[in-house]
Design a protein around this nucleic acid. Structure first.
Length: 213
DNA sequence: CGAGCGATCCTCT
DNA sequence: GAGGATCGCTCGA
């Protein structure tokens, strides 16, 4: 028998753990995004861990800056960054304040509000593509830098919550190198996804940029 | 479904 | 001034 997803909101204790413990534990959890247009819920299927200032793949690697400030703050907050001149990506801050660890939300299945998500993701070829990739996920949820720092635990004004959902069993958690991260940052299998889930994004190896001619 | 390729601008050096 | 935790488009299988 299949249990209905648990709608209990996760508390700050969930996030206040080592990032490599939190990241795989996020699979199967449900992120709620409220907005004036209506609610959207996503069952998370793919994430990546970024492990503090010592992680060469992390935005925190070169220390605290205005952009990554939220990463250094308390756990259970959303870190949103803008990249490639066009896109936003979402992370959940983990570990104790000052540690700068976070989990990039890479993909999920829209379980509530798919109709609204379709209006924001007109290029999606099917519903599995609505949140298949970190920028696509942020687009489907209408997330931008204005939501950087939003609290997921206990702030009634926050548009985000994380529900317990149906956590993925350990033997259904796949892992591999992080997408688009090169060099020393690629040696660890810190990308986690739900095995055989059709909403997981395709792996893309890191490609160094060539200058325009 | 996927390989190849260009877009586009913020952030930090 | 360089480069990026990516994506959409096109074309072919």
């Amino acid at each position: 028998m299949i249990l209905a997803p648990d709608r209990t909101p996760l508390t700050r204790d969930f996030f206040d753990r080592p990032v490599l413990e939190v990241a795989p534990d996020l699979l199967g959890r449900v992120l709620v995004r409220d907005s004036d247009d209506g609610p959207i819920e996503v069952r998370l299927t793919e994430v990546e861990a970024y492990a503090g200032e010592a992680d060469p793949g992390s935005h925190a690697y070169r220390g605290r800056t205005p952009r990554n400030d939220v990463m250094f703050g308390p756990p259970g907050h959303m870190y949103v960054y803008f990249t490639y001149g066009m896109w936003h990506c979402m992370n959940l801050v983990t570990g104790p304040e000052g540690e700068a660890s976070a989990v990039l939300l890479r993909a999920g299945e829209i379980t509530v509000g798919a109709e609204l998500a379709r209006t924001r993701r007109l290029s999606a070829r099917n519903d599995k593509e609505l949140a298949k990739g970190p920028a696509r996920l942020a687009t489907a949820l209408a997330v931008d830098r204005s939501l950087d720092g939003a609290d997921l635990c206990g702030d009634p004004a926050s548009p985000f919550r994380l529900l317990a959902g149906t956590p993925v069993e350990a033997d259904q958690v796949s892992e591999g190198p992080r997408t688009g991260v090169g060099g020393e940052g690629s040696v660890h299998p810190w990308r986690f996804w739900t095995a055989n889930d059709p909403t997981v994004s395709p792996y893309r190896a890191h490609v160094p940029r060539r200058r325009r001619t």
